[in-house]
Amino acid sequence: MATEYSPKELMACVAARELRDGEVVFVGIGLPNLACNLARATHAPNLLLIYESGAVGAVPVRLPVSVGDPALVTGSLMVASMAEVFQSFLQNGKIEVGFLGGAQVDRWGNINTTVVGGDYAHPKVRLPGSGGAAEIAVNARRTLIINALSPRAFPADVDFVTSPGHRYHGTSRAALGLPGAGPVRVITDRGILEPNAATGELELAAIYPGETVDGVRAQVGWPLVVRDSLGTVAPPTAEELRLLRDVLDPKRLFLKG
């Protein structure tokens, strides 16, 4: 029986399925947080959640609305100082998965959360900036990008590289000496992009039920390569939807739309 679901609900499910039990995840607010807690409630009960604010092993009983929510502290395993979070956990290689997203993602998986339009000193739109994103993109062993597709959000080149992807002005991550693998999946609202193993350019790797290749291509600002063996993605299960809607985000703070 077909069940109705929203693109964001499927994005949260796809992200949750990427996480393996026992992994250490650097979590952000919104869909990443929902994905991690969905994974914890289904196939990955031993997922260890770390928030940049310092909560380690957080088990939030209410939906956190910011990375510094007090519910992340209550019942956690450890409260680390932010120096410990970035140095002892992230830079020291203890974070296996980091979640990222932003106003712009380009063909190499570079992310812009700093300025759009104009130049850095005189931007058309000023965004919040890096926060912890740059260091997560550099140091997490792998990252997952969650971003809805649109031509504005997926230009060929971002206006400003806040968080590095697979190539910076032609230079690869390896040549730049970045320790992490970079974005291994870009989870969008229509399909999943993955980097080409040789070049790092994002390609269409899987498509969601009801979406078309042309529909995806129209949302991306570069000639998107489509893999020969294009994967399909299972829709959310009834249990995944129940958890998302009734338990994790009952007020639909992050699932609406």
């Binding site: 940049e52 932010m82 120096a83 970035f86 140095q87 992230l90 830079q91 570079n110 900036g129 890096s130 926060g131 912890g132 994103a133 740059a134 260091e135 550099v138 140091n139 590289v161 590095p164 992807g165 910076y168 230079t171 991550r173 730049l176 000496g177 970045l178 320790p179």
Partner: peptide, 26 residues
């Protein structure tokens, strides 16, 4: 970035002129 600010304060608190971090490549 956050790590950069944390590192700046760590240097200040340690009485050192600067701090090193594995960051900002790319």
């Amino acid at each position: 970035s956050h790590f950069g600010m944390v590192a700046r304060l760590s240097a200040g608190a340690a009485g050192l002129p600067f701090w090193t971090l594995r960051n900002y490549g790319g």
